[in-house]
Design a protein around this nucleic acid. Structure first.
Lengths: 207, 207
DNA sequence: TCGTTGCTTTACCAAATGGTAAAAATTTAG
DNA sequence: CTAAATTTTTACCATTTGGTAAAGCAACGA
């Protein structure tokens, strides 16, 4: 009575909305928001365009739905960062997780990157509500570790930026990386390099 | 006689091609290739659309011209990397230069990032001819430094990826960075953080 | 079995977009 | 000053694109 959409989705709805979002991820991440077309998305989902528009109100709604669903997955590893664990190992674990995500879900990473590149015009709200509080909270946790002498003194915010950028690079610039590495698998080298780099950065001076 | 376009461009040509490319940089970097329109570019340049098409053969030619001109500027700092200089200082200098470029030319950085995100469909040739040889050459130079014990043992290719990703992050994800830093200027913090990180990574063990 | 609801298709449409033809205006060279 | 060359405008056009209306079809509860 109070809920504007009380009906639970049917099996067909579940299936088709999933098909559409899967196809949309392909198309949006490959062609960008502006380059993506409803025809391409409908085609990839195996539906007609009007049929697609039966499930979503328009291009923008598909895109926003996709991004906000993805944001959860994306922020999950950061949420897992445990203030009660060992600082260096917690952060190195986070690096490892983010790298794995970049390597296994490159389309998702590129979708976010594309939105950010354009100034996040369609995501600003979500970022404010979900990303910012989490970011501030984790910065504070890292600062506490530093204050306790359990971590080298670093700027928490820029540390997080460095983790994000270095790991996501393997997804967002994946074509370039593959090309420059002569199509060798980047996974192992990346893992070792990032582990080495962040371990050196984070390790507090032993006394 | 052999040159297919021997005529040197008039002053008007120089001016208008420059106006168009400047506007195109704005539009392409903001809206992506697919989202950019000739009308928007023409508008930004203060020309009519047909007038714009008098100077360039089409949307694609504007885009490719822009990117290939930019590639030079972009690779310049890497070219400057001097194998005869001090390894750590040379590489830290490169980091500084790349960061300065990201902060001062964010639109250029985003334009490249957008092209890479989409798999560099319109830049593959240029990358093969200009980027790859330079990259291989500099990787070898870094490896020589390592072999001479003047640099910590790191994977040169992944080192370069880390430098690119961390510095360009401040341009490509500039909106996110500004938002998460509460619109504080990221320049100084970024500079200090990256210097600290790469110095620790690169410094060979003293004996 | 019948009617209601939910899903899909067919047939469209208006606006936007990349691009062209050719006339008009302007600049430049002699 | 004039004629040729260059530059700009006006008037178009075909295609693509996001989106709609409404009819047809399928599923399901009573």
């Amino acid at each position: 009575m109070s809920d504007p959409t009380p009906k639970k989705p049917s099996r067909i709805q579940m299936r088709n909305r999933r098909l559409i979002l899967d196809s949309a991820l392909d198309v949006f991440s490959r062609d960008g928001y502006g380059g993506a077309t409803l025809d391409a998305i409908a085609n990839g989902a195996g539906l007609s365009k009007p049929n697609l528009l039966y499930y979503f109100d328009g291009k923008n709604e598909i895109y926003v739905t996709l991004l906000s669903q993805l944001l959860e997955t994306w922020l999950d590893p950061l949420i897992e960062l445990n203030p009660d664990g060992d600082p260096v190992e917690e952060l190195l674990g986070y690096v490892r997780l983010k790298l794995d995500m970049a390597l296994e879900l490159p389309a998702e990473s590129r979708l976010f990157a594309g939105e950010m590149l354009q100034g996040a015009p369609r995501m600003a709200e979500h970022l404010k509500d979900e990303l910012k509080p989490l970011f501030d909270q984790k910065c504070k946790a890292i600062q506490d570790w530093i204050d306790a002498g359990r971590l080298a003194p670093i700027d928490p915010a820029h540390l997080i930026f460095s983790i994000w950028s270095t790991t996501q690079h393997y997804a967002d610039f994946g074509v370039q990386v593959a090309f420059l590495l002569d199509n060798a698998d980047p996974a192992k080298g990346a893992q070792q390099h990032l582990e080495q780099m962040f371990r050196k950065l984070l390790q507090p001076i032993q006394q």
